Amino acid sequence: MTEQGDPPREDALLVAAGRTEAALLVWGVKASFLRYVAGVGGEISRSDGTIELPEGFGFPVRAVEADGTLVTAGSIVIRAHGGLLNVELRDPRLAPTPSGDELSIAGPAGRLVVATAPAGDPAATGTPPLALHPDAVALFDGTYPPGTELDPVHFLRYREGISPAHGDS
């Protein structure tokens, strides 16, 4: 059984207190994109501890850096059309910036900022939506323009001694 956390920064305190094995950064990517992939017979594979949940993919939180950046592990690879569509989202990080949060992934040339969320108080505004960053348009083969709304991120934490019901595939 799981408990859903509210603002990411509150759950980050649990992570900072050494409970990283029990925290997940959950991101649904973009629901319409995933429906499209499923509709054309594509596949999504998970690795390195990433699990699939009803609300998205859970990436295990490994650490919180001094600046508040949440470091995760794990990856998903989304493939369709015989590999012509191939999107790898590996080791997401959520980093605070003066203008809001940035969600980035590991890539061959270093980190790639995939999306941004505006600054604000999550307790007052709820989880803000993510907007596709201009540098990540090519990741989705130019299908979505900069600023396209992506699914928001949130946290899920597990009670002591309870493991996720879903595993790697």
Score class of each variant (00 low, 15 high):
S99H: 07
L13D: 09
A117C: 07
A23F: 09
T127S: 06
E52L: 12
T20C: 08
S169G: 05
D67L: 10
M1R: 05
L34N: 13
A63C: 13
S75L: 09
I51P: 03
H166G: 00
F59G: 02
M1P: 05
L130N: 03
A66L: 03
S104R: 00
V29I: 15
E160K: 01
Y144C: 05
I105P: 14
L53Q: 09
L89H: 01
G58P: 01
P122I: 10
F140R: 03
N86I: 06
R90P: 07
L130P: 04
S104I: 07
G68E: 05
D101G: 01
L34R: 02
V15T: 05
D141G: 11
T50K: 12
V77T: 15
A136T: 05
I44Y: 07
H154I: 00
G107H: 08
A165C: 09
S75W: 04
T72D: 13
P92H: 04
R111V: 08
G161P: 02
V153I: 08
I105T: 13
A73G: 14
D168R: 08
V37A: 06
P134E: 03
E21S: 07
G49L: 10
P129M: 06
P118R: 15
V71A: 08
T116Q: 00
D101T: 13
R90D: 13
V113W: 05
I105H: 12
I78Q: 12
N86R: 11
L14D: 01
L70R: 05
L14G: 04
E43Q: 09
T2M: 12
P108T: 05
F57A: 03
D151N: 10
P145A: 02
H133P: 12
G147Y: 07
L112C: 08
S32N: 14
A123N: 07
P8A: 04
A106E: 13
D135T: 11
A117R: 02
R93G: 15
G167K: 06
A63V: 14
A17T: 05
P7N: 09
S75F: 06
A63N: 11
A66F: 03
V64K: 10
E52H: 06
V71R: 12
W27T: 01
L53W: 10
H166D: 15
P108Q: 07
G100R: 02
S163N: 07
I51M: 01
A124F: 15
L132M: 08
A31I: 14
L24D: 01
G110Y: 07
R157V: 15
A66I: 12
G167C: 08
P128V: 10
S99F: 03
I51H: 10
G41C: 14
A138W: 04
P54L: 13
L85S: 07
V40T: 08
A38W: 02
T50N: 10
G82P: 01
L103M: 10
P129N: 08
R9M: 06
Y36T: 15
G42V: 09
T50C: 08
E102Y: 07
W27V: 04
